[in-house]
């Protein structure tokens, strides 16, 4: 039997109960509630509709709503699980769960793989790796000759593509990360352990207020 919750709380479309999200992620209920405070802030920074739009995501990352960045686009696309162009609260929490210090390493490795599999082929291809290196250089205002870029890409690709078929599959990626654990360092956000301190939740008092 389903449960129809008619509590008169001011929740946005896409809101999911913290108990449900806590059960599916490494977060506790109070951490999910604190994430809701962060989500509300991010999702109302430009358009106050309770959904994170790409411009709002860019604004939060770069303090600039118009700054396009290949990697931020990839992160946004992976967070946007329903692929409807916005990040809902449930998507936000589930995706951030991968970045929790207690999330399984396999989830982090898998997320990074999907991030770098730009064309969703199930492989990281040499051209994709080169495209990402060029994007990084452009973002950092670093100028390297095309020859040097080719050497960097070739060297890494040869180390990772152990089967030598010109593409990196998930198994090769897992092996490559195990040899180079620093590659998934950015898949862990220590902040998430202190999220209740950074964004204290006022959910209980808000619900009392609504009664």
């Amino acid at each position: 039997m389903g449960c129809f919750c008619s509590k008169n709380t001011r929740h946005t479309p896409g809101y999911e109960e913290p108990t449900v999200l806590a059960a599916e992620t490494p977060f506790t209920v109070s951490e999910v509630e604190a994430l809701y405070e962060l989500f509300k802030k991010l999702s109302s920074s430009i358009i106050d509709d309770g959904l994170i739009h790409k411009e709002e995501f860019q604004l939060a990352l770069f303090k600039n709503r118009n700054k396009r960045n290949l990697f931020a686009d990839r992160i946004f696309d992976l967070f946007d699980i329903k692929r409807n162009g916005v990040i809902e609260f449930g998507e936000f929490v589930r995706s951030l769960g991968v970045f929790h210090p207690n999330a399984p390493e396999a989830d982090k490795i898998g997320f990074a793989f999907r991030l770098y599999d730009l064309r969703h082929t199930g492989y990281i291809e040499r051209e994709e790796l080169k495209e990402m290196v060029l994007a990084l250089l452009q973002e950092s205002d670093l100028i390297l000759s095309d020859d040097i870029v080719e050497v960097i890409v070739d060297k890494t690709f040869n180390e990772a593509d152990t089967k030598g078929d010109g593409r990196i599959d998930q198994e090769e990626w897992k092996e490559f990360v195990s040899k180079n654990p620093s590659l998934i360092k950015n898949m862990t956000l220590p902040y998430l352990k202190d999220i209740t301190l950074a964004f204290p939740s006022f959910v209980v008092s808000a619900e009392v207020e609504d009664l």
């Binding site: 962060l38 991010l42 990352l61 990697f71 790796l129 290196v133 999220i195 950074a198």
Partner: peptide, 26 residues
């Protein structure tokens, strides 16, 4: 010659676009 010895994925992982800690800045 330093960049040549660099791991391409390591280079990429330094992108600001992958640094989600900015989301938590007040």
């Amino acid at each position: 010659a330093a960049p040549v010895t660099m791991n391409a994925f390591e280079l990429i992982s330094t992108s600001q676009g992958l640094n989600l800690s900015s989301l938590f800045e007040k």
